[in-house]
């Protein structure tokens, strides 16, 4: 009797899910299949692994003060993207974690005000935000104007890796704070009292209770910052003066050059690497949670 009822429920559930399943299939699964299909075919849509091989083997020469070097173009671009994304993510985490903690400890009204303030920039277009940073960071921009006024001299920052990182941190910071905040806001204060009761000072409570319990939030925050920042292209073009060609720029460039198959191959490889990374991180988190 009971089993039948739950069977009906599953059917109703499935029906209710149908529009979403359809949506997901159409806009997530189908495009992914297309990416994979393009990645493994040539211009005549015959199967090939050339696009994939090209990503790992294509070389070019770069010059620096020690002379000219032969480098693997796309591997280098990928590593550069990874480096900038990791730096941005770490900065977001270092500033976002304590910030999220402080917000979760504030009064209910202050909490909602602060969360709204964090979200407001997200309501503005991404391109406009990046342009705003250009005008701030330019050699003749607002930052240098301000420094000049204080008599501190000017700094050259636009077109450096720092400018790109600043842009990424600014754009993706809310994605780090929100998931961590939502985990912390739900944390039972009795657990923190229990930890203090059982001999933990402030640092002990943080290390042994707050941190492990907030780990799911940290992981989704890291994911939500790392993934878009590793594949970003616009920020590096505008704030890096195009000097830091990132993996996103590479994909965009190949599409712009109508080289769809190779662009798809880069996207595909990036996706696989990220999936492996995510799986690894999830395993690490589960292991921590199980201890």
């Amino acid at each position: 009797m009971k089993k039948k009822a739950s069977g009906n429920l599953t059917l109703i559930r499935r029906l209710a899910l149908a529009p979403y399943s359809f949506w997901a299939a159409l806009f997530i699964v189908v495009p992914l299949i297309f990416v994979a299909y393009y990645a493994f075919t040539d211009l005549q849509f015959r199967f090939t692994t050339d696009n994939i091989t090209r990503f790992f083997t294509a070389t070019s020469t770069v010059a620096d003060e020690t002379g000219e070097h032969e480098v693997r173009t796309y591997v280098l671009i990928f590593l550069r993207s990874l480096k900038l994304a990791v730096i941005s993510t770490v900065i977001c985490l270092i500033f976002g974690y304590p910030f999220a903690y402080l917000i979760s400890k504030a009064g209910a009204r202050t909490q909602s005000i602060l969360i709204t303030l964090i979200m407001i920039p997200m309501w503005m277009n991404f391109l406009i935000r990046t342009y705003a940073w250009m005008t701030i960071l330019q050699d003749t921009g607002i930052l240098n104007g301000f420094l000049g006024m204080l008599g501190l001299g000017r700094i050259h920052i636009i077109g450096t890796e720092s400018a790109v990182v600043i842009g990424m941190v600014y754009d993706y910071f809310p994605y780090m704070i929100l998931p961590i905040y939502s985990v912390m806001a739900k944390m039972d204060v009795k657990l923190l009292e229990a930890a203090r009761d059982l001999g933990c000072n402030g640092v002990g409570v943080l290390r042994r209770v707050i941190w492990p319990l907030s780990l799911p939030g940290v992981i989704s925050g890291v994911t939500m910052v790392l993934i878009p920042s590793i594949s970003t292209f616009y920020i590096s073009q505008k704030l890096g003066n195009g000097k830091f060609y990132l993996i996103g720029d590479a994909i965009e460039g190949q599409y712009a050059a109508n080289n769809l198959h190779f662009a798809a191959a880069i996207a595909f490889i990036l996706m696989v690497i990220l999936l492996i990374g995510m799986a690894f991180m999830q395993r690490f988190a589960n292991k921590r949670a199980a201890v």
């Binding site: 009795k190 009292e193 229990a194 930890a195 009761d197 209770v209 319990l213 949670a289």
Partner: peptide
């Protein structure tokens, strides 16, 4: 202290 709803550490 033994807390009202135990406050055991879920992790």
């Amino acid at each position: 202290t033994v807390f009202q709803r135990y406050a055991l550490f879920p992790h």
